[in-house]
């Protein structure tokens, strides 16, 4: 907020709640990593893209996998390549730096300008993974042991970390972060999000689809509740399929776009029949 140019105010294709925008700015000003949690499909990854766009910085994404190691994000020393080269006499084997490849975090620190670094789904990796990154995220420098070269960030990158809460993160790691939990959007908020993606949607279709969507989420026994991104896909399918809006709540067309599990689809059709039955009984 001290510097107007570096204030994040959301972007045209991403609707951020005022609280979220404020938290982003706090993280930017305090130069601390921003930890984002929330239900799947609430736009955690999109947020980093939006921040990069809003602040006009390049985005570096690091998609963490279960096999990811902290070291990979810094740099990889390609020993096998070097061994092969020594065998077949390709290039200058004595120059170790030729075999050092910077990872995403490494490139973010080595970058000339300030960048946004997205560490996506940090909880996918091993339990120790976040702890291994503590020093680098705190000090924003690291040493390449093989060449004794130190890489230090000229401009501290804006670090955005997302988590699905599959694993608890270590306390020491959490202490250094600014945290925000993205709640599932209310109907009103959802409407504005949807309109960003489908600006010219028929109003009647939107009304009925939203109603059915929130009704689906409330059905007890649904294990994987449909999320924002699925709603957006579904609306797209409804619009392209030319479905009569009145049919939506009666037939649940393209249900497979919203629900991904057999049991959930069964539960939804069961609830649909019940709904029909009570309505018929009421008459």
């Amino acid at each position: 907020m001290t510097d107007r140019a570096s204030t994040y105010a959301g972007t045209s294709d991403y609707i951020a709640s005022p609280e979220l925008r404020q938290t982003v700015n706090v993280a930017v000003v305090l130069q601390r990593p921003l930890l984002i949690k929330g239900e799947p499909g609430t736009g955690k990854t999109m947020l980093a893209q939006s921040i990069a766009q809003g602040l006009g910085m390049p985005l570096i994404s690091w998609n963490v996998k279960s096999t990811s190691k902290a070291q990979d994000g810094l740099y990889v020393y390609d020993t096998v390549q070097r061994l092969y080269d020594s065998q077949f006499g390709d290039g200058d084997v004595a120059d170790i730096s030729r075999y050092i490849r910077l990872g995403q975090l490494g490139s973010a620190l080595a970058a000339e300008e300030r960048v946004v670094l997205l560490i996506d789904e940090i909880d996918k990796a091993d339990l120790e993974f976040p702890n291994d990154l503590l020093w680098e995220l705190d000090q924003m420098d690291f040493t390449i042991a093989e060449t004794k070269e130190t890489v230090k960030a000229k401009q501290r990158p804006v670090v955005v970390i997302t988590s699905n809460a599959e694993k608890e993160l270590p306390d020491a790691f959490l202490r250094r972060c600014v945290f925000h939990y993205i709640e599932f959007p209310s109907e009103e908020h959802m409407r504005s999000i949807v309109l960003v993606h489908h600006p010219d949607l028929e109003e009647r279709l939107l009304d009925l689809a939203m109603e059915t969507f929130y009704w689906l989420r409330e059905i007890p026994g649904i294990q994987k509740k449909p999320s924002t991104s699925e709603l957006i896909d579904w609306l797209q399918a409804l619009a392209i399929g030319g479905i009569d809006p009145e049919e939506i709540s009666r037939r649940l067309p393209f249900l497979g776009v919203l629900l991904k599990k057999d049991r959930d689809i069964d539960a939804a059709s069961f609830a649909l029949r019940n709904k029909g039955a009570t309505r018929a009984g009421g008459r």
Partner: peptide, 30 residues
Amino acid sequence: ALTEALAKGLALSDLSVFYALARAVLVKSE
């Protein structure tokens, strides 16, 4: 960190902004 944020003027004039700021900085799990 919260003190630093307040000193940098991140919670200007608004208690609800302070509410969100303090929560973002102090609380690390929903």
